[in-house]
């Protein structure tokens, strides 16, 4: 059995080494936190004080500034997970499964937040907390998929083995998500032909678009920051587990 002892230290390989990854990305965390905080401050200011209330929906329209970015993230995070899953399966990149593991609970949280704000918004506008509308239904199913993936991660003792299996499941899920979306849309349009909620939406004045845009970036950067921190935590957790195992063996012998 031979060992390749000539490591190629390009940036890709550096990122592949968990210790190096932590070292390289640690300086990024505080700037990211600051940027996220700044974006949130600006976004919330615009959202609360510098945008008009909707003439129909009143102040409840401001829920949109949380709802729309989280709904976007609910899909974006799944995309991140699917790309990481490819990284695990195809390139066998060790950081890919760390990223996959870190993203799953974040995705579940953002999806839950999107559903929660959606139903808060639905109460005054539709008159009910829950409407079996195509988007809300497929978001709910997406939440179930996220929670299933989190449960799958937790069920394994060996995280390296878990990574590959979760990666396969994530990719099969990624193939399925468009099918689910399509089927749910087909189903909901047949049930309620005259929807209160039109897909193209009303024309949005700039005063609404500005805070929406800022909040959109704020949430995206929030995700990136949390993802990075969660990845660092995961790398450290694995290191602790390895040390503990070594210690246990040392005591035993």
């Amino acid at each position: 059995m031979s060992i390749d002892t000539t490591p190629k230290m390009n940036w890709w390989n550096r990122l592949a080494h968990p210790g190096q990854f932590v070292q390289w990305t640690r300086p990024l965390i505080w700037p990211l936190v600051a940027l996220t905080a700044l974006l949130f401050a600006a976004g919330l200011y615009f959202a609360f004080f510098n945008s008009p209330a909707d003439y129909q929906m009143g102040d409840t329209v401001r829920i949109m500034y949380v709802h729309v970015p989280t709904a976007w993230l609910s899909q974006f995070v799944y995309g991140t997970m699917a790309v990481s899953a490819l990284g695990t399966l195809v390139w066998r990149h060790p950081m890919a499964d760390v990223s996959m593991k870190a993203a799953a609970p974040l995705g579940a949280a953002f999806t839950a937040m999107a559903l929660f704000t959606g139903s808060l918004w639905g109460r005054p506008t539709w008159g009910t907390f829950w409407e079996w509308d195509g988007r809300m239904t497929s978001t709910l199913i997406l939440l179930f998929i996220y929670l299933g993936i989190v449960a799958l991660w937790r069920a394994f003792d060996d995280q390296l083995k878990a990574a590959r299996i979760v990666a396969i499941f994530t990719l099969v899920g990624a193939v399925n998500v468009p099918i689910i979306k399509f089927s749910v849309d087909w189903w909901s349009t047949l049930h309620q032909p005259a929807s209160v909620f039109t897909a193209d939406g009303p024309r949005m004045p700039g005063s609404i678009l500005t805070p929406l845009f800022v909040m959109f970036f704020a949430f995206t950067f929030l995700f990136i920051t949390l993802q990075l921190v969660a990845m660092h935590t995961e790398v450290k957790r694995r290191r602790v587990m390895t040390l503990e195992r070594k210690a246990a063996r040392g005591d035993a012998s």
């Binding site: 059995m1 060996d158 390296l160 587990m241 390895t242 195992r245 063996r249």
Partner: peptide
């Protein structure tokens, strides 16, 4: 060669 995270 190893099993789990234990190098044998």
């Amino acid at each position: 060669m190893g099993r789990g995270e234990t190098i044998l």
